[in-house]
């Protein structure tokens, strides 16, 4: 199969894989700028595992509902818990995240053990990052979430950026930093839960970190960081899907690896520039 035929097959046979991974990558990349700059990268790792645990929960024999709901409920509940506990100084932040991370993985393994074999394969597909079979319904839901969350972030840009830079002073100026931190973590929680259901945990965590890291390495202005992060996020899904087809690899990890190579090249070029 020629390169052109591969691209044509992706666009005609798997359009939602391409569009879904692009939208998920852009959403994660935008939120990732805050996640990386707040130094809460491990929140992303933990929430993706919580989302998978929520999906596993929905496959238990007594739970008969759409896996996406399990993912959203689990992630939002844990996000609220994080937002509350991460502001407390009595429990170390990494302890909260570490305990949640390992609890989510342990719960997921236990729940998979008790699920029907056919449904285990669906969770396996998410864990392997098999994004080729994204459905139209999943894509439209992801697109809706993308539009709503981006609107919230663009309308309240000042509040998010001020609280992220200096929460104490923001509060003195009428921006309740506790509330805005909670809103921020909720937007990340909703984005992670929906995106993980569609494109898998490795993809979501990868795109929460890699594009933001690349953008922060190269941008000289804050506004450019968001634009560059979106640019870095837009390239790997296209190349990753192409490589996955050509080399018969799982698309999610291939896309993330492509992003990592791009980050490495960016880092080397930025070193030369300096």
């Amino acid at each position: 199969m020629s390169d052109l035929e591969i691209f044509r097959t992706i666009v005609t046979e798997f359009p939602y894989a391409l569009l879904g991974s692009l939208v998920a990558a852009l959403l994660c990349a935008y939120l990732g700028v805050y996640v990386v700059s707040k130094r809460v990268v491990f929140v992303g790792a933990t929430l993706t595992q919580v989302a998978v645990a929520g999906i596993a929960f929905s496959h238990l024999p007594f739970a008969d509902f759409e896996p996406l709901y399990g993912s959203i409920v689990f992630t939002v509940l844990v996000t609220l818990l994080f937002a509350w506990m991460l502001q407390s100084k009595s429990v170390p932040r990494d302890t909260v995240l570490g305990a949640s991370f390992v609890a989510a993985i342990a719960l997921r393994i236990l729940m998979i053990q008790k699920s029907a074999a056919a449904e285990v394969s669906e969770i396996d597909a998410i864990l392997k990052g098999d994004i080729l079979f994204v459905t139209a319904q999943q894509f439209h839901l992801l697109l809706g979430v993308f539009i709503v969350l981006m609107l919230i972030h663009l309308v309240f840009y000042k509040a998010f950026i001020f609280v992220s830079f200096d929460a104490e002073t923001a509060t003195t100026q009428g921006f309740n930093s506790r509330v805005w931190e909670m809103v921020f973590y909720l937007t990340v929680g909703v984005a992670v839960s929906v995106a993980t259901r569609v494109v898998g945990d490795v993809f979501v965590f990868g795109f929460l970190v890699i594009p933001a890291a690349g953008a922060i390495l190269t941008a000289r202005k804050v506004k450019n960081i968001f634009l560059l992060a979106i640019l870095y996020a837009a390239i790997p899904p296209v190349i990753g899907l192409y490589l996955a087809f050509k080399l018969d690899l799982p698309a999610g990890p291939t896309t993330v690896t492509t992003g990592l190579v791009l980050l490495l090249v960016t880092w080397i070029l930025s070193r030369f520039k300096h």
Binding site: V36, F162, F165, T169, A170, Q173, I216, K221, V222, I225
Partner: peptide
């Protein structure tokens, strides 16, 4: 700050 806020970005806050 990890992000490259300029002096004027900070002051406008």
């Amino acid at each position: 700050p990890i992000m490259p806020f300029t002096v004027s970005d900070v002051v406008i806050m």
